[in-house]
Write a protein that binds this DNA or RNA. Structure first.
Lengths: 218, 218
DNA sequence: GCCCGATCGATTTTATACAATTTCAACACC
DNA sequence: GGTGTTGAAATTGTATAAAATCGATCGGGC
């Protein structure tokens, strides 16, 4: 996945490393270090950091540098609360307009997800989950809401990734729920799909809150 | 309102000019011209443009420059739809925790609003409206949602400003509704305030849609 | 011994200069 | 006459280097 500008390329890489946990929450992101690490100057790094700050993954304190946005149970709860409000609305709007190609792509994503589940490739799960959700909402014709939800999904990935290694049962339940949601959408049962989607997000939220409650982030 | 960094200062100024309409929708924002206009280099201008792009006011096409984000009835409808979903929820959470100082500030904003209404100072109305709404939600303890709603309010200001010069009755109705919402909140009638807030946003949406329908933006 | 202030170091921020890319238009060719 | 190509001009994107700012440490005073 190549980008046309160095700044966006660096932005993608830093984003991936934050989601991977290679840059832990709260850690300093020094422009000079990142620049030399990517073999570029500091200015593309700066632009990438600004982009990431807008997405909520990075906090920039003027003259004090950039840090990876901290993880907190309250933030996770708010992100999931927003998802619970916005995503069912998007699904209700999008479901009637999904095409056969869309469902083919959804099936492919579900298969990739199952494969990642078998291989224990937790790194791919987050992006596949985000892609699947966004695909299901892609026909809602709400570009601004879609952008917001995309950022929320990325944020939630940071939390779920903490949880993945310890709680494999959650992944399987998510897989089952995903498949059921896609099935309901394909058969035209939009309202049932929305209800299940709301439950799905509630399940993720409850599981994550329980996990964060037992192991609060520093 | 001075900012500690030149980039953010330039960002505030460009934002104000976009909201004012001095930089019309779709117009090119040339970095060199802006830099010389502000007596600075292009790099702070670039960072300001990136910030504004994240807020949705500017579109940046790689190697093709930055343009003011276009106005479309569909975008206005989506922004108001989101506001209608998110703002009542914030108000419900915030109302029980608003303090006496908060209501004093709300009263001051309402008075400023009335004064601006008498003077025909349409430029101040947008910021006052945004400040009042955000103040009412400030105790909801939902920072991410608050940020989203702030961006939506700024976006809506761009549309309502088009409408203001022609439709003064809308302003007076908004004033009445604002006062009633504040009164209900002060007296602890949270659910009634939320219902009225939802109506308020619906009224703005209906009026704006009627206006945009008769005078669609280019 | 403890608190306050100034200097030093490091980092960010900004300015200047250069390179890469796109767009527009003119021109040759089909 | 239409179309593809090629050139130049303009604008953006990037690199290098100087200036401003903030935090911390060290020294002096109470």
């Amino acid at each position: 996945m190549k980008n046309r500008t160095i700044a966006s390329s660096i932005g993608f890489e830093i984003r991936r490393r934050i989601l991977d946990g290679r840059y832990p929450a709260g850690s300093q992101l020094r422009q000079d270090g990142l620049a030399s690490e990517f073999g570029a100057s500091r200015i593309p790094v700066r632009e990438a950091l600004f982009q990431l700050e807008a997405e909520g993954l990075v906090r920039i304190h003027p003259h004090r540098g950039a840090t990876v946005a901290p993880l907190s149970p309250a933030d996770a709860a708010e992100a999931l609360e927003l998802r619970g409000v916005l995503e069912p609305r998007l699904l209700a709007l999008s479901t009637p307009r999904l095409t056969g190609d869309d469902f083919d792509r959804a099936d492919a994503l579900l298969e990739d997800y199952a494969a990642a589940l078998r291989d224990g490739a937790t790194a791919r799960w987050g992006t596949l989950n985000t892609e699947l959700h966004l695909l299901l909402y892609s026909r809602a014709d709400r570009p601004r809401t879609l952008g917001i939800v995309g950022a929320l999904l990325a944020e939630c990935d940071r939390y779920t990734r903490l949880q993945l290694s310890t709680d494999a049962a959650e992944l399987e339940r998510a897989d089952r729920e995903h498949r059921e949601i896609v099935r309901l959408c394909r058969n035209g049962h939009a309202s049932a799909a929305c209800a299940l989607l709301a439950d799905h997000i509630d399940h993720v939220a409850a599981s994550l809150m329980a996990f964060l409650g037992t192991a609060p982030t520093p």
